[in-house]
């Protein structure tokens, strides 16, 4: 395995600097954002590298849980901030976060104990990257699905209320919108399962191969990861859509769009 020196990274950073320079000349107004996010990449990854090094050294369940908790709350914030119309109060944050918690944590635990069979099951070299990949993908699915659900419910108020007026209950009246939203949340992972290896090599597999693993081992890991991500995203998306759509109605089966707020 060829290790990278900081000088190597500096060479790669010249590309970003060149891009920023051109963007400045062309008055795209992107150079600031580009430089800031490039710096964030460096700082965040160096920090997480430090944290992981310490975490791997101690291997204590408490610290690993704390790390997992931080990852979850940040993912919850990201889901919430990507909603055009979000549920008021703690509901939006709570539903998104708990859906991701249920699915990502359960699937990661299953993978660690039943698939990879690590001892101890919380060994951070496996637990943290697995959870990270699951959370990252579930986060995208959940935010897409919740956004679709609340947006469509807002636009199709008249249709939902017409169905309620004809005697449908709150589950029937929003059933089609619910299915559409679940579909929206799951399309990305279904697409990437269908095209992976042909259109692009998945990031994790690329990383393993660059780091010197035999391709076949990398492939097996990647297949497992794809399955885990599909399950985690699917369950997370379903949970978030069910909880959100339930909260859009009151106990008398009335559509309560005043529980949403827009930016």
């Amino acid at each position: 395995m060829i290790t990278l020196s900081y000088l190597d990274l500096g060479a790669a950073s010249l590309l970003v600097l060149a891009l920023a320079g051109i963007s400045f000349k062309m008055r795209l107004g992107l150079h600031n954002q580009l430089l800031i996010s490039a710096s964030r990449t460096v700082i965040q990854l160096l920090l997480v590298g430090m944290v992981l090094r310490e975490l791997f050294k101690t291997s204590q369940l408490g610290w690993i849980m704390l790390m997992a908790f931080v990852m979850l709350t940040v993912a919850g914030r990201a889901v919430q901030s990507r909603q055009k119309r979000r549920l008021k109060g703690l509901w939006g944050y709570g539903i998104g976060t708990s859906s991701m918690f249920i699915s990502s944590f359960a699937v990661t635990f299953f993978a660690l104990t039943a698939v990879v069979s690590v001892t101890p099951w919380y060994m951070p070299q496996y637990a943290i990257p697995l959870l990270g990949m699951l959370l990252g993908n579930t986060m995208n699915g959940v935010s897409l699905a919740m956004n679709q659900l609340t947006q469509t419910a807002w636009q199709q108020k008249a249709f939902i209320e017409q169905r309620l007026l004809l005697g449908q209950d709150r589950v029937q009246a929003i059933s089609d919108i619910r299915s559409d939203s679940i579909r929206t949340g799951m399309i990305p992972i279904i697409n990437s399962m269908a095209t992976c290896g042909i259109v692009s090599l998945p990031g994790m597999m690329t990383g393993q191969i660059l780091a010197g693993s035999p391709p076949y081992e990398a492939v097996k890991y990647q297949i497992m990861i794809m399955f885990l991500i599909a399950a985690g995203t699917g369950f997370g998306v379903m949970a978030s859509v069910f909880l959100t759509s339930k909260h859009l109605f009151d106990e008398r089966h009335r559509l309560c769009l005043d529980r949403l707020k827009s930016d």
């Binding site: 309620l164 007026l165 004809l166 005697g167 449908q168 209950d169 089966h253 009335r254």
Partner: peptide, 11 residues
């Protein structure tokens, strides 16, 4: 229940 009511009181 609300759905029952709305079936009887048709709007």
């Amino acid at each position: 229940s609300a759905p029952q009511w709305r079936k009887q009181v048709g709007l």
